[in-house]
């Protein structure tokens, strides 16, 4: 199959993720949408790697996975501590500071 199709899929997934970040209200779901965006990037890397015939893109995909895992650790810690003190993970409820 033409590898370009994978690029279209990656762009689609990335857009879905970005839209999800903007419209969803639960911090966990927002965070999952960010992870979807990172995985869309991975797909793009691997597709480009196939097209260029070098391995850089595949190696980068591994780095991205590790970074995403580290981000999950930090992100869930922050979101869970917010949830425990407010009994809500809604990003709309977190509004102590406003302009």
């Amino acid at each position: 199959m033409n590898p370009v199709n994978y690029l279209y899929l990656a762009a689609l997934l990335f857009t879905i993720g970005a839209t999800g970040v903007l419209i969803r209200r639960n911090a966990i779901v927002v965070f999952m949408c960010v992870e979807l965006m990172l995985n869309a990037c991975n797909l793009a890397f691997v597709a480009f790697s196939r097209m260029h015939g070098n391995l850089d893109g595949q190696v980068i995909a591994f780095f991205t996975m590790v970074v995403a895992a580290a981000e999950v650790v930090v992100g869930l810690a922050i979101i869970v501590s917010l949830f425990r003190s407010r009994h809500s993970a809604s990003v709309d409820d977190a509004s102590l500071m406003k302009l």
Binding site: I78, I79, L82, A94, M97
Partner: peptide
């Protein structure tokens, strides 16, 4: 407030 700032910054 501090936790809220962290969530906003993180997301």
């Amino acid at each position: 407030m501090s936790q809220e700032a962290a969530v906003k910054y993180f997301l």
